[in-house]
């Protein structure tokens, strides 16, 4: 589904990604694990088309993404949950939810289904976006891409700063949507959470993929990885 080939990216003179190659398949969760500053968020921004200083190839379902604008990529099925959650302060919860277009009617969650899955959002649908707690904002950011019906989700630390119950809930939702063929590229520092939802893991260090592990290998080395990552 998503194929990243030999991706290098720069901020000005500084190279932040070097020859990164990875793939996410349908119905699969792949994680990017690495320290702060390893280039994880930059990689997601490259896929979304928001970071333009890059070389290499990005393909979604055999289709070249290079020439597509960010909004065309979103319409092609990429759903982004940014690390700052990206909730609009000047929009209500419901407006935040219904702002983006539905990109696939088959896959898109109707608003009622979203409110069923996230009752906290239903209660606060008329509140302004930033009146939500951090956890509610994270749920809203997830809910927003579910409503779009994206086929590939880019999740940037969805568990960060959330109560364990909510993290668990997000894990369940990720499994539920991947059962329907959605692919997920998950940036995560919470190694334990990553191990509960992911199929494969890419370890990113100083802008390079240093190792690729399946989930069994990953779980077996969890402690070592925790130490290595310093998290």
């Amino acid at each position: 589904m998503l194929e990243v080939t030999c991706l290098s990216a720069w901020y000005g003179e500084a190279q932040v990604l070097t020859d990164v190659s990875l793939a996410v398949h349908e119905g699969e969760v792949a994680t990017l694990v690495g320290r702060n500053g390893a280039g994880k968020t930059t990689l997601l921004r490259c896929v979304m088309g928001l970071h333009r200083s890059l070389e290499g190839q990005l393909r979604l379902d055999e289709r070249d993404l290079d020439r597509l604008s960010p909004n065309a990529r979103a319409r092609a099925g990429i759903g982004w949950v940014p690390d700052d959650r990206g909730i609009y302060a000047s929009l209500t919860v419901e407006e935040n939810l219904t702002l983006p277009p539905v990109v696939s009617a088959d896959r898109a969650w109707p608003v009622e289904q979203i409110y069923e899955a996230f009752p906290a959002l239903a209660d606060r649908r008329a509140s302004m976006g930033t009146q939500l707690s951090g956890g509610e904002q994270q749920m809203l950011a997830m809910a927003r891409v579910l409503r779009m019906g994206s086929s590939l989700l880019l999740l940037d630390e969805p568990s960060e700063g959330l109560a364990p119950v909510i993290v668990q809930r997000i894990g369940e939702i990720i499994r539920q949507i991947t059962d329907h063929g959605v692919g997920v590229l998950l940036v995560e520092q919470n190694v334990t959470f990553a191990a509960t939802v992911a199929d494969r893991h890419y370890l990113l260090a100083q802008g390079r993929v240093v190792e690729q592990l399946d989930n069994a290998q990953f779980q077996a080395r969890e402690h070592e990885l925790l130490e290595h990552l310093g998290i």
């Binding site: 979304m48 088309g49 928001l50 604008s69 960010p70 909004n71 990529r73 979103a74 319409r75 982004w80 940014p82 990206g86 609009y88 302060a89 000047s90 929009l91 702002l99 983006p100 277009p101 990109v103 927003r144 779009m148």
Partner: peptide, 13 residues
């Protein structure tokens, strides 16, 4: 107005 880049990334032209 609030966040043009993010709005593009959500599929709005």
């Amino acid at each position: 107005t609030e966040e043009p880049e993010r709005t593009r990334a959500l599929g709005i032209n």
